[in-house]
Design a protein around this nucleic acid. Sequence first.
DNA 1: CTAGGGTTAG
Length: 688
Amino acid sequence: MASTPSSTLLSPLYESNTFCNFTSLQKLSFPLNNKLLHSKSVTLTTTHVSLQEQSDISNPTNSRKTASSSKSSYIWVNPKSPKASQLRQKSYDCRYVSLVKMAESLDSCNPVEEDVINVLADLGDKVVEQDAVVILNNMSNAETALLVLKYFQQRLKLSKEVIIYNVTLKVLRKSKDLDRAEKLFDEMLQRGVKPDNVTFSTIISCARQCNLPEKAIEWFEKLPSFGCEPDDVTYSVMIDSYGKAGNVDMALNLYDRARTEKWRIDAVTFATLIRIYGAAGNFDGCLNVYEEMKALGVRPNMAVYNSLLDAMGRAKRPWQAKNIYADMLSNGFQPSWGTYASLIRAYGRARYSEDALKIYREMKEKGLELSVVLYNTLLAMCADVGLTDEAVNIFEEMKASGTCQPDSWTYSSLITINSCSGKVSEAEATLNDMMEAGFDPNIFVLTSLIQCYGKAGRTDDVVRTFDRLSDLGLSPDERFTGCLLNVLTQTPKEDLHKLTICLEKANPKLGYVVKLLVDEEAVEEGIFKKHAAELLDCVTTDVRKAYCNCLIDICVNLNQLERACELLDIGLTLNIYADIQSRTATQWSLQLKSLSLGAALTALHIWMNDLNKALENGEEFPSLLGINTGHGKHKYSEKGLAGVFESHLKELNAPFHEAPDKAGWFLTTKVAATSWLESRRAQEVVAA
DNA sequence: CTAGGGTTAG
């Protein structure tokens, strides 16, 4: 027996050896398939198995001959029994494994004919077409694969040459080499090999994977000119390609066409459709496809579940992800890595922290490796909801895993956590770690630091951090500027001018509006409101409320109540705030959820004025009046709006009391409210 | 795993 590693591997396939003699097997009269004749099970090394019919066992000489040489026990197996098919399977597995090993050697050998021939020489003479297919199918090196193809073409009589071309095209697709794939296609034609649907679907998906969806479409369109009718798989690939090209309509058209042409649309295609809808942001579309699929009696597979979960994560619908996951489990599917990843993303982004952490622990228990993206998702979630200890824990486990390195996202979340919990020196230390790991501070980090220093009252450090942004060649975004604006709400009056200079640089319109406030500049009536409205109108909707809240807070701090009211009014006009005041027959309410303290106080002020007006007009109060501050305690501070508001209401002598059964609600009765407002009015008269 | 689709993202 040859001793080189590759020939040792191949020997069970093509050489007779002490444990099994092919010649003796071949003499047997019952039909053995070709695969078996070329193979020998590895299990034969300890237990000898024969696939003879029962009558053959009467010939002890023949069987003992081999058995004695191996000194192993002899077991007879009926060829039609499950055991025989298991054995056949094992033999095949063994041969398959060897061919895969050869594919690996071919991948790593020099892309020159001589070396490729050397590796392939170990196959011996009894090469069959299927061996060639298996080898190429398991290769990934485009250059050597083309040489392997050539080798087999020269040496084998290929009855189905298109297959060997198709598997080679797969190799080219693996290396995303559309150029070579197209060249190979031309070569096929020159040799008179007729391409089929497999050929086209492989080239089309190659183009798709090369991010050349328009090329994919081109190939799809030339398919009929080669006498091919697209089938279900080709449709599926094309649906995906159109989706990738952003051509959702064409993708759906094709789906309709496939449906009318009565192709059986299988789960993979449905998964593709769900992915397309998900990528297009049409999340109800995803769910509709899922329903349609079930209605057509197609059983969902993992791809369907995973793409649905992914879509529900993008949609920020964690509850739907939860339902789908439950469906999946009840249908007997085991979550895959992708399932867990989608769930962590869905729960993490939606701040379902307990659910996300549960999945995290489950992954750990199963020994699944998390990627840096997943760790970062968890850490960002912890930062969002203020799970400081949990974040530290996860970070430690991430480092201990040894499989992934923290990146700038990781550090960014950690700095955010430290910043939000007011740990200035820890935040600075983490920033140093980040830089030592080779990452420049990014805008997220600087945003956090500005918050951090602002909270600590270190105005000069805020300014320094602000300047660092442009030093790094970055320009402020709306969030960064918003955080800076938020710092102004916590800064003593005498320091404000330092920050307005920064604001003017970051956003001149905002700088101007704030300057009007800070300088307490008297301007013509309506000017402030006009500029503030213009400003809020042109910032993105997702920061509008934050900007408006901050501006109102600054007004309240500087005792400019009139401007605070103007801002609140703008907020209502621009729909930044909605339904602050509401009235039903039984209760009048003030809705303060998601308002900053200043905005809430301003809204209360306006409400009290409106209640007074109602009293003056002789309107009847309902039996109950209520203020809802929301019960959510702020994640990084002990007191939420409710806590702060309660003491403020006391100061005003207001008869509102927190409802024991409705967290975040302060209620009073018609009588108490009326007498309170009337006594205030009396006091005002006295004061005047 | 056995000639074609999907599967790891912020």
